[in-house]
Write a protein that binds this DNA or RNA. Structure first.
Length: 271
DNA sequence: AGTGCGGCCTGTCCGC
DNA sequence: TGCGGACAGGCCGCAC
């Protein structure tokens, strides 16, 4: 599922194909994904040039010279560069068409993704302006997590999945990082020490970087801009492995529901 | 303010 | 074999 490594993998793969191209328009085949699609998007972007493809959290920002298309892949979305004349498959909901016969094609079976338009600063968009810190920046560290978590009683796993605290850490990587840090995911966020948060911040960075180096994680739908899956699934330590042995101690891994999300951990290695 | 939950959506899997 | 129902999940919006 697209979390930060998958979105960044997508961005890196697409960037050279789209930057500096001129938009011919948009073909929209569904009325709405998570939100209604922007009215008259085709007319808004026609003739305008792509200046950059950026990422903020799990949002992709296609910066045009007159505004920004904000994209979110939800949980089943993928973006590919394809020949515009190729016929769309099932769930290929949106084409962003470039001059030269190429287009960015958004496939999203579960329609939890989003396509938005803004002519203002996208970082001031309602959905982006209150996002938390980027995990792969120096400012994201144990001190940050420690100070933001004081007084919070929710589970530490839910805390690090809160995009208003830190972006890009979804269910899969939260499970993996907590295992690497040796922290029980059920523990209250406000009752974890500064030194343990230092371990956790490092674990999050390490897990995200490792996943990106493997092209992200493909459980079912995810493919990168060239249509290839990611291979981090082969390196998952706990996610989806309930009942199988812990790679560290051999004990059977446990599963539990935490904040309505399936969670996997070793109750010997994680305290 | 913090917390938890419902809802959106489709594909897959399980039990009857 | 067919069918209903549970589940998966990001994240907004709402209620307490």
């Amino acid at each position: 599922m697209p979390e930060l490594p998958e979105v960044e993998t997508t961005r890196l793969g697409l960037e050279p194909s789209v930057v500096q191209r001129r938009m011919l328009g948009a073909k929209i085949r569904v009325p709405r994904l998570r939100y209604a699609l922007p009215p008259r998007l085709d007319a808004k972007i026609k003739g305008h040039r792509v200046e950059a493809l950026e990422r903020r959290g799990k949002y992709l920002l296609l910066r045009l010279d007159n505004g920004t298309i904000i994209l979110h892949l939800g949980m089943s979305g993928s973006l590919r560069v394809v020949d515009c004349d190729s016929s769309p498959a099932l769930h290929d909901h949106v084409d962003l068409v470039f001059s030269g016969g190429l287009c960015l094609r958004l496939r999203d079976p579960r329609r939890f993704g989003a396509v938005l338009w803004t002519s203002e600063d996208p970082h001031e968009h309602r959905l982006l302006r209150d996002l938390g810190i980027e995990p792969l920046t120096p400012a994201f560290d144990g001190d940050y997590l420690f100070s933001r978590s004081r007084g919070r009683r929710l589970a530490v796993k839910s805390f690090i999945m809160d995009s208003h605290i830190v972006v890009g850490v979804g269910n899969l990587y939260a499970n993996e990082a907590l295992f690497v840090a040796g922290i029980d995911p059920r523990r209250a966020a406000g009752r974890i020490s500064r030194v343990r948060y230092t371990h956790l911040a490092r674990a999050i960075k390490r897990v995200l970087r490792d996943a990106m180096a493997k092209g992200g994680t493909t459980l079912r739908d995810f493919v990168n801009g060239e249509g290839a899956p990611g291979y981090f699934r082969l390196h998952l330590r706990v996610y989806g492995r309930a009942g199988q042995p812990c790679h560290r101690c051999g004990r059977r891994l446990k599963s539990a529901r935490i904040g309505q999300r399936s969670s996997f951990f070793c109750d010997r290695c994680q305290r």
